[in-house]
Nucleic acid binder design. Structure first.
Lengths: 335, 335
DNA sequence: CGCCATTCCGAAATCGTTTTAGGTAATGAA
DNA sequence: TTCATTACCTAAAACGATTTCGGAATGGCG
C-alpha cells in the first residue's frame, strides 16, 4: 500500500492538515516545521494520491487528445502534434491522455467531459461538428482546435499559414522562371485546401500569369491519386513545366508518374509540395516543400489551452503560424 | 457544475447508495428500480466523477506510456506502438496517458507509481535500467516491456522475432542464388541487434556459405551511416551481390550509395532490410523487408498488461511475435 | 399467529486529500 | 495586569463516489 499523508502525520507528530499545508507551502506554517515535514515526507517516499487530490481540487492536470477516426496507423502529422503537445504539457505538470475516436463521437466526448476526466481538450479540425462545440461550451471544458479555422465565438484554433506558404512556394517557382505551373488540388472539405489553392491563384496573379484551367486537377483521397493526375497533366498538348502538389504524398506519386514517362526531375519538371513530411527527404531527388512546424503547433496548442484552463474567461485565441519553405533538389530553373 | 449522484438521488427520491448500486447493477436492487434510476440518470446526463470513482475504487483505468528519451519527434515505430496500445486499451475502458521521458527518469517513474496515476505501465526496452524493475516491483505496478527480452523474473515482454525474421530474409536472398551477402550491423546494445545478426549467420550456415568478415560492417546511430557502410562494401575487390541491412533506414542510405556508383537495384545489387517502415514503399524500387507488426505489438502489449492488472498474481508473460517477409522490387535473382 | 427467509433499500463509513474556520499560546502594547 | 495581535497549528467539513452492514417489509410455512 502506498504511503498516505496520514502516515507522514503520524511520524511527524503533526496533524494531517499541517502536513498538507507544509507540503503545499502555505504561509501559516513555521519554516522549521515545513522543513521537517518535507524531510520526513521524502524519507517515507510520500507522494500525494492523484485521485484524492483530483477529487478535492477539482482538476486532473490531464489534457485529452482525440485520435483520428478509424485509426489503423496514425500519420506523421498526428504523431508530431502529439509529441509537441506532450512536451508542452509535461513542462507545466500536465499530461496528455489519448482517446481513440469511437463511432459515437459525441457520446464519447460527453462522457469525458461530464466525468471530468480531463481539464481541457485538444481537437483536430477534421473530425468534429458544430454540435461538439455546443457540448464543450455547455460543459465548460476549454478546448483548442488544430488545423482548421473554425468559425465559432468560443473556439480557439491554431493553423499553419496555408495561404502564405503556398504563395511563397509559388514565388519560388516563378522566380525560377516557370510560367506553366500545375496545381493538384483536393476536394475542398476544409479551408486547408481552399487556402492553398488561393495561394496558388494569388501567386499566378502577382506574376501576371493567366490561369489555365487545364493545369488544375482535383485529386481524391485514394492512395495513389497523384499518379493519375500527373499523367493527365503530362498528356496535355502543352504540359506544365512545374507542379505544385497540395501535399507531399501527391508529389511523390507525381514524381513516380513523371519518371515512368522518362522525364527527369527537376530538369524536365520541377515538383514542389506542402507539409514537409520526412518522406520528402528520401525521395530521389528530395522534394522542395513548405514545411508545417507541426511539433510547434502541438506545443503552442497546449500552451493556448493551458491559458484557458488557468482562466476560463480568457478570450478565445486564434493563431496562424508561418510555414517554412525548404528548397531541395526537385525544383530548378525552367528550361 | 456537473451533475452528481446526489442530484440523481434527489430526483429519484432514492438514497445515494441505492442509486449507485442501481447504476452498477448490483443484484439487491429491484429491476424496476434499476430501470427508473437508469432512466433518470440518462435524462440528467449523469456521469460519475472519474476522480471520486478512482479514489474509492483505487484504480484509474489508465495505462502509462513513457515516450522515448529526448523526443523532438517520435518515430513511426513508437507511434505505431501507441496506436495499437490506445486501441486495445480503449476497447476495455482504459486509456493511455503519455509521459515524456525526463532526465531523472527514476524520479519520474517513482512519482507516477506512488501517486497511483496509472494502473500499469508500458515500457520500451531501450530506455530503462534494472533499478526501474526494483521500483515497479516494490510499488506493485504491473508493467510490460516492448522490444527487448529482459531477463527479470517479474518482467513481461513482447518482442518481434528478430532471429526468425532475419533467417527468412536470408533464405529469400539465398533462394535467389546470392552467395555474397553483406550485413550492416549495429552496435550490440540490445539483443535486437545480436538476434538479427544471429539470423544472418544462421542463414549462411544453413546454406553452407562460409562467413566473410569483410561483408559484415557495423553502422553507427548517426543519420546516414548506411551510406558510408555501403561504400566500403562496394570498394571491396569482391563486392557483395546482396545486402541485408539491419533496419530500413540503413537500406535506404545504402541504395543511395549504390545509385551514385551507377549500380542498378536489384539487377546489380539486391537490398533487403528489417522493420517495414512506410518509407520502404516509396523508394524506387520499393524495398524488400521483414515487417514488424508494430500496431499488433502495441495492442498485444496492453492485453498482456491488462491481464496482469486484473490479477496481479498472473505470472509474467513473454511473447515473440512473428515477422512478415514482404518481397518487393529491391531483391532479384543473382546474375 | 409466530418465526424465518428473502428482497430491497438506506445509513454511514471510507477512499486520501485540501481548505475553512477556528483555537491556543506567545508577544507586545497600553 | 489586561487585551489585542500574531504566529502557528488543528478539527472537521468538504470533494463524490462505492461498499459494508443492517433494517424494514414481505412472504412462506408450520
Amino acid at each position: 500500500m502506498p504511503i498516505t499523508i496520514e502516515q507522514v502525520s503520524q511520524k511527524t507528530g503533526l496533524s494531517v492538515s499541517t502536513v498538507s499545508k507544509a507540503l503545499n507551502d502555505y504561509p501559516d506554517i513555521a519554516p522549521e516545521t515545513k522543513e521537517r515535514v518535507l524531510q520526513i515526507a521524502r524519507e517515507l517516499n510520500y507522494q500525494p494520491s492523484a485521485a484524492a487530490r483530483n477529487l478535492r481540487r477539482k482538476h486532473t492536470n490531464k489534457i485529452g487528445f482525440i485520435l483520428p477516426f478509424a485509426v489503423s496507423y496514425i500519420s506523421e502529422y498526428v504523431s508530431g502534434l502529439i509529441t509537441g503537445a506532450a512536451m508542452a504539457a509535461e513542462a507545466t505538470g500536465y499530461n496528455i491522455v489519448l482517446y481513440t475516436n469511437q463511432s459515437n463521437q459525441h457520446e464519447q466526448l460527453a462522457k469525458i467531459c461530464r466525468a471530468r476526466e480531463v481539464d481541457g481538450l485538444l481537437l483536430r479540425g477534421t473530425d468534429h461538428v458544430d454540435e461538439t462545440f455546443a457540448l464543450l461550451d455547455h460543459e465548460e471544458i476549454p478546448f483548442v482546435i488544430t488545423g482548421r479555422r473554425v468559425d465559432h465565438p468560443h473556439a480557439s484554433y491554431i493553423v499553419p499559414d496555408n495561404f502564405g506558404g503556398s504563395l511563397t512556394l509559388m514565388r519560388h517557382l516563378i522566380d525560377l522562371g516557370h510560367k506553366r505551373i500545375a496545381f493538384t488540388s483536393r476536394p475542398a472539405l476544409f479551408e486547408t485546401n481552399t487556402d492553398r489553392m488561393a495561394g496558388y491563384l494569388e501567386g499566378l496573379r502577382q506574376a501576371d500569369i493567366v490561369i489555365d484551367r487545364d493545369l488544375i486537377i482535383e485529386t481524391s483521397v485514394e492512395p495513389h491519386s497523384g499518379y493519375s493526375a500527373m499523367n493527365t497533366l503530362l498528356n496535355l498538348s502543352n504540359p506544365p513545366t512545374a507542379l505544385f502538389a497540395i501535399h507531399d504524398l501527391i508529389a511523390i506519386d507525381a514524381m513516380q508518374a513523371a519518371f515512368e514517362r522518362g522525364l527527369r526531375v527537376p530538369e524536365d519538371l520541377s515538383i514542389a509540395s506542402f507539409d514537409g513530411i520526412q518522406a520528402t527527404q528520401i525521395t530521389k531527388p528530395p522534394i522542395t516543400t513548405a514545411r508545417q512546424p507541426i511539433t510547434d503547433i502541438g506545443k503552442r496548442a497546449v500552451e493556448m489551452l493551458l491559458k484557458r484552463i488557468a482562466d476560463h474567461s480568457t478570450p478565445p485565441m486564434r493563431e496562424i503560424v508561418p510555414v517554412q519553405l525548404i528548397v531541395r533538389e526537385s525544383t530548378a530553373r525552367a528550361q
